[in-house]
Amino acid sequence: MSFGKPERYEEEPRTRPRTAVVAVCLVLGLGLIGGAVTGSWLAGDGGDGGARDTYAVAGTLWHSVPVDKLFPPTVRGTGAGPGGADRTWTRVAVAPDTGCGNAFDPLLRKALAPVGCERLLRATYTDATQSFVTTVGLMFTTADAAAMNALAGRFKSEGLATRTDLMPLPYARKGTAAARFGPGQRASWTVSVLTDAPVVVYAVSGWADGRSVDTPVPAEQAMQSGATSAPAQAGLGNEAQGLADRIERSLRKDVTSPTEKPS
Rank of each mutant, 00 (worst) to 15 (best):
L151Q: 06
A152Y: 02
T38I: 15
H63I: 07
T19I: 11
L32A: 11
A187L: 14
P72N: 14
S212I: 15
T78D: 15
V75K: 00
R180N: 07
R186S: 07
P183T: 13
V199D: 00
A177V: 10
T19N: 12
S205K: 07
T176H: 03
T134C: 04
A93Y: 04
V200K: 06
Y171D: 13
M1N: 05
T90H: 04
A232L: 02
Y125S: 05
D97W: 04
V57W: 15
C25P: 01
P218C: 08
N102S: 11
A111S: 12
D97Q: 11
V75E: 05
G182A: 10
Y55Q: 01
T141Y: 01
V27H: 04
G206M: 01
A227W: 14
G59M: 14
K174W: 08
E10F: 03
D97M: 09
G242T: 09
A208T: 06
D53S: 04
H63E: 15
R211I: 15
F140K: 14
D53Y: 07
D214P: 08
D86S: 04
L42N: 08
V191H: 08
Y55S: 03
L121M: 04
R246H: 01
Y125G: 01
F3E: 10
M139C: 12
W89K: 00
Q221G: 01
V27K: 10
A20C: 06
R119E: 08
A20I: 12
L42I: 06
S157A: 07
I33T: 09
G50E: 10
V133R: 00
A234T: 10
T195A: 05
L107P: 13
G59Y: 05
L26I: 06
M167Y: 07
G83H: 09
E158C: 01
